[in-house]
Design a protein around this nucleic acid. Sequence first.
RNA 1: UUCCCGGUUGUGUAAUGGUAGCACCGCAGAUUCUGGCUCUGCUAGUGGGGGUUCGAGUCCUCCCCGGGAAGCCA
Length: 559
Amino acid sequence: MSDRESSSVDFVRSRVAEDVKNGRFGGKVRTRWPPEPNGYIHLGHAKGIWLSFGIAAEFGGTCKLRFDDTNPTRESEEYVEAIKEDVVWLGYTWEEVVFASDYYEQLYEWAVTLIKDGKAYVDSLSREEISAYRGTPTEPGMNSPYRERPIDESLDLFERMRAGDFADGAYVLRAKIDMAHPNLNMRDPVMYRIMHARHHRTGDRWCIYPTYDWAHGQSDSIEGVTHSICGLEFENHRPLYDWFLDQLGVWHPQQVEYNNLNMTYTLQSKRNLRAMVEEGIVDGWDDPRMPTIRGIRRRGYTPASIREFLVRVGVSKTEIMVDRGLLDFCLREELNRIAPRVMVVLNPVRVVITNYDAGATETFDAENNPEDPRAGTRTVTFSREIYVERDDFMEDPPRKFFRLALGREVRLKHAYYVTCDEVVRDQDGAVTELRCTYDPQSRGGTTPDGRKVKGTLHWVSAADAVPVEVRLFDHLFTREDMVNLGDRDFRDFLNPDSRTVVTDAMAEPAVRGLQPGARCQMLRHGYFIVDEPDSEPGRPVLNRITGLRDSWAKAGRKP
RNA sequence: UUCCCGGUUGUGUAAUGGUAGCACCGCAGAUUCUGGCUCUGCUAGUGGGGGUUCGAGUCCUCCCCGGGAAGCCA
């Protein structure tokens, strides 16, 4: 890991490094991360955050959180607060929170400048006409009949657009570039449109709003941004970004585009995410199955595991589909080191230790984390009646089944070896109880004769068991590629088993002491977090973040 | 027969024109008081054709494939 820094860096970082080295931009690094406050952010956004904030920090520069709030009909304060929280949770610190709307006046003045220079004009064409005049990717567009409108007239019209003299759509301000340009973005792009809409910050002060193309680069310039890092979808906009800045003759940042993050089994389009919430497919934006930052936070993923995931994925300009399992790997890697172990039986079956005194109990010291001796120990209580996992017993075990079966001896973690002598069934033949004997010599998990047992089971003393609710999560979708669905709908691929609720799991008492938000490893099951919204004192609800690697289950899947 | 950007093992990402490496996944084994962790080994790649060169993943050229672009969304 230490040689990662020295061995190679991604292309964005190497470009920044080169600019710093050459003294471009005075050797400074200033970035911004510019979300539109029109929804909750997700893992895909986390990559942009990691790049813009991360690079600024790595180069001793600064990064602002800038809300690109140029479309008042879709934006709200609710989202700006949510996004701020999410950025903080991911572990980043902004130099300042700013808004594109802070620059509306300057943007307006610059627009006037361009009009005066004959580089922008007010157009009277309708939305449909503008579209028709634009041409197509293979055919040049046509000039608007209003393109040569006298400068004074455009100036007057633009002023009156601002003053509210016109209805929505009556006029737009356009840059005067080239209607035959091979890049469609250069065919006289719209800079301002009339929208009589209340803005979440500027209220009713404006009824004309700048488009992204007009607002974005100029905002970067005002902030003295050096590297404007954005997604590949803006690559075709870079010539326009550069054009505006060049016409104005102002500070000119370098736009750099990176590949967006797609992951298997996950959907990240805001529109579809919203549909899932609105249709009740999930419980909300923070449903633990959602790829939103709020969702994965509630699910239990850590900020560090997300950052590590992003580092491992890296950056390039290739379209990618990353195996979501890599995120789980990063989570396990972190939690294996720090998560306290606990024993929880998800699907309990009663075990009676027939040669253990009824009413007797004894305690064992159980290590909290074998990876970290400093984590110390806790006490677990053993008694005549315990629960073990129903799946840990088999009547007719296959050859490599190392768990409980008639006549088989296994270790109860931290406690004794037990051998199964008898199976008790109900009338339907279902196992209701296992009767076992223990070897008093095996106390602590080893015997003087040194004999080996292949299996070690987790267990909970029946008298001490704490009932808990456990929620097991799986992919929301059954299809790996949820990005390219063709003419199919995401609803065609919903996984009916994306959430399994276990209401009667039996946990060792230590689980009751876990605070909401605390993470643990359930021995042999996986990593869990105590759900914050739904847990109540003494009655924890646990979300499975991800399972442990399971080579036994894997072997079972083989033909 | 438009413009822009891409194409390296299954996935992601490296390689001043000089031994195609790393990680995840997968497989096999060792170890183990978690069928976890750890350790060892294995599998598998430069889209294609020409060219330049002593030598090409890298440079040139043609082609193929994928993505983006015709919002008054960002």
